[in-house]
Design a protein around this nucleic acid. Sequence first.
DNA 1: AAGTATAGTTGCATTATTAAACCAATAACC
DNA 2: GGTTATTGGTTTAATAATGCAACTATACTT
Lengths: 147, 147
Amino acid sequence: MRRTSLDDADCPVARALDAVGDWWSLLIVRDAFFGLRRFGEFQKSLGMARNILTVRLRGLVESGILDAVPAADGGAYKEYVLTAKGRDLFPVLVALRQWGEAHQFPGEACRIELVDRDKGAPVQPLELRAADGRRLAGADTLIRTRA
Amino acid sequence: MRRTSLDDADCPVARALDAVGDWWSLLIVRDAFFGLRRFGEFQKSLGMARNILTVRLRGLVESGILDAVPAADGGAYKEYVLTAKGRDLFPVLVALRQWGEAHQFPGEACRIELVDRDKGAPVQPLELRAADGRRLAGADTLIRTRA
DNA sequence: AAGTATAGTTGCATTATTAAACCAATAACC
DNA sequence: GGTTATTGGTTTAATAATGCAACTATACTT
């Protein structure tokens, strides 16, 4: 598995991708948000090779994104549930989702939408805001090395 | 290169990852936001194999994320610049960055920060909001199939 | 106890990635 | 105008990751 180059060791984007930047991890996390917990559920949902799923689940547990709990409903198998760190990936998935909706359905309309559970209404697009509340685009920002 | 499984063909997250879910693409896009444009600049910054960079750049151009423009400053070589579609990946990178900052620097502090260009102040954390403005966590949302 | 489903592991074939050499087209120098 | 260095790749061979299918072990069902 890849590691970030040394030049990139300080970049939080690179470190994030180090943990979840492979082919499957974010899809596993997406399914975990959707409520899947068991090895077989993930495997069936993703259609991926089982040995790779084993490796990915192990990696996500080691990264502290998933927790392998012995049993939830009395059943004897392990279940994989999101930790707080894993739940914090939610904005990443939402950002990918919104970008995919906007740009990866040319011609057709995306048939799946993310809605507010209470009201059933679609959520707002994510927006980056400055400390004073102004909306910011990429060009309005700057990467700075902290003192 | 992987393609999403057929079950996932409708999921915008899967389609997004299909375009930028590999090891390098998002780092290339990050560097493009940072202002890099030339083959050699990307290669030097990322330290990746050049043939793979060739393939990734071609893929990003085919996906409409980058545009290969013949010359910007009169120089004769190609330059790779973000399209509108590519610039729309900004929230994805910010989400990864903020997650990385919060969780991938255990013990140490992340020395790089994203700031508002005008004011120099750090940006706000991305937040998902309902149509009526309420903050939403993952558990407050639902995936729904559109009529 | 026998049969079945779950959760992996193992071994082998396929594919992706890397590192390094190679090449063509500028650009810089003299 | 010819030589040399740099840029932007391509090709090739070795290495690493991934997928597929068969296998094992444990738990559940009857």
